[in-house]
Design a protein around this nucleic acid. Structure first.
Length: 426
RNA sequence: GGAGAAUUCGCCUAGUUGGUCGAGGGCGCACGAUUGGAAAUCGUGUAACCUGUAACAGGGUUCCAGAGUUCGAAUCUCUGAUUCUCCGCCA
């Protein structure tokens, strides 16, 4: 969400940004919202002066009453009532215009970073760098569900009976591996100076609408029946929500947090939910990192954040690459975004395991997250990135650490979390 | 889940027969005086947002949130949130 003042003063910048994102159908909204805004301010001006007059007269009534001049007071009362109708009308208009303006401002995309490559959709995303050698072994790598089942580590059939498609039972060493990865990722981030946090797994609707658009909400969020609560789709929701309506002291910045949570997603309309396995599922667990910082520091934090994910995967012997989101594929709230993708020796391509985003001040403006600085108050910048999200991450882990006999090597870094095991075997 | 009390300007607090309360006091903070420098002391100032202005000025909104009564609400009514105390239940 942009600052309307910025839009008012730089309509051409906003329009060029819309073109860069290939959302030309939104171009007329810019002039429309400028017109609505000037009309709104005119109504507000008139209403303010009527309210001012009313306040003045009301004070007079108070004074007259105090002096016992009852009749004069009644006369002034009448004057006030005369303006009441026009004021009520204007107040109605103020609300209507505010709503109209907000609705449009919510869909006008954030100004993207100049470094973002211009492109229509995900096919034009740009590979930045590869880390590690993408190896294809000389034996066949089975589908990930099969690898897990061969190790007695996955029971989809029972999960379907109990909860339906998109759920899973992880069993034995695979379940332990899952927990080990989460714990390892937690300690990895703590070692890099992040504060560990376990947030609420349910949040109020007020927070939900603050962190995402209505369309996203409908497609992702599970609502608790009879309560004003939603299951979180990612801990970013509760972690950024933590700062709603707060004024953060400048000297306390940056806030660097790493949070654990289960994540619940409807995946409405997404293809592949019926796909066998644990790639796209209704429930998974995630170690996340978020940063709240000064505006001028967000680009530096952005690079530090995705680097953390790359480093973590490299310590687990998984080749990865970074892929920059092009302008057309970038969500409207984001200034810049990079996906971390892991190598799949079975598919012989990289697939997404994490996403790092700089939201600029867009989220902060929506949630009223401000910084109290020496030269006044301003909106903070917010960033978020996946540390690791199993079980999807397990797919990459298993495929890259598998031996010809079907056993799985445990990288040294993870062995302490697996009770010293070096290998998972049947 | 039931009963009661509470929620005021960064913090603590005054303010409930509705009108000189957008709000008094203390702490904190800023500036000034005093001092060789400091502490202490004294003085002055000290909310946010919107609108407006070249900049001031001016106007509006906000006393947990929303709705209502009224010419007028921190003060009255309703709903909700949160906190505390007691009871019940429970990992």
């Amino acid at each position: 969400m942009l600052d309307i003042k910025f839009l008012r003063e730089n309509p051409d910048v906003v329009k060029q940004n819309i073109k860069n994102k290939f959302q030309d159908s939104k171009l007329p909204l810019v002039d429309e919202v400028i017109k609505l805004d000037s009309e709104y301010r005119a109504y507000k001006g008139e209403a303010d002066s009527l309210r001012g007059g009313r306040n003045k007269l009301s004070k007079e009534i108070g004074m007259l009453m105090a002096q016992g001049k009852r009749e004069e007071a009644e006369a002034v009362k009448k004057q006030v009532t005369d303006n009441a109708r026009r004021l009520a009308e204007l107040e109605q208009l103020e609300v209507e215009y505010q709503e109209k303006i907000k609705k449009i401002m919510m869909v006008i995309p954030n100004i993207i970073d100049p470094s973002v490559p211009i492109g229509k959709d995900d096919s034009e995303n740009v590979e930045i760098q590869k880390y590690g050698e993408p190896v294809v072994p000389d034996f066949d790598i089975p589908y990930h569900a099969e690898i897990m089942e061969n190790l007695s580590g996955l029971d989809l059939e029972s999960a379907r009976k109990v909860a339906g498609n998109g759920f899973y039972y992880l069993m034995g060493d695979i379940a332990r591996l899952h927990s080990a990865i989460i714990s390892y990722a937690r300690d990895f981030m703590i070692d890099r100076g992040f504060t560990y946090c376990i947030p609420p797994f349910m949040i109020r609707s007020e927070v939900v609408t603050g962190v995402m658009s209505f369309a996203e909400m409908d497609a992702m969020m599970y609502k608790i029946e009879g309560e004003d609560l939603y299951l979180i789709g990612t801990s970013e929701h509760s972690m950024i929500g933590k700062y709603i309506d707060t004024i953060v002291p400048e000297e306390s910045l940056p806030h660097t947090l790493t949070s654990y949570s289960p994540c619940f997603r409807k995946e409405k309309g997404a293809h592949g939910i019926e796909e066998r396995g644990v790639y796209r599922i209704h429930q998974f667990e995630k170690q996340e990192m978020i940063v709240v910082c000064k505006p001028e520091e967000s680009p530096v934090w952005f690079d530090k954040l995705w680097q953390n994910t790359v480093d973590l995967f490299r310590t687990l012997d998984i080749p990865v690459r970074t892929l920059e989101c092009c302008s057309g594929d970038l969500a409207d709230l984001k200034v810049k975004s990079i996906d971390v993708e892991a190598w799949s020796p079975r598919q012989k391509k990289y697939f997404e395991v994490g996403s790092c985003s700089n939201l600029g001040d867009a989220q902060a403006r929506r949630l009223r997250i401000r910084v109290n600085g020496k030269d006044g108050k301003y909106f903070a910048h917010t960033l978020n990135n996946t540390v690791v999200a199993p079980p999807r991450m397990l797919i990459a882990f298993l495929e890259n650490n598998m031996n010809a006999d079907g056993s799985i090597n445990i990288p040294v870094a993870l062995q302490p979390y697996m009770g010293g095991k070096t290998k998972i075997t049947k």
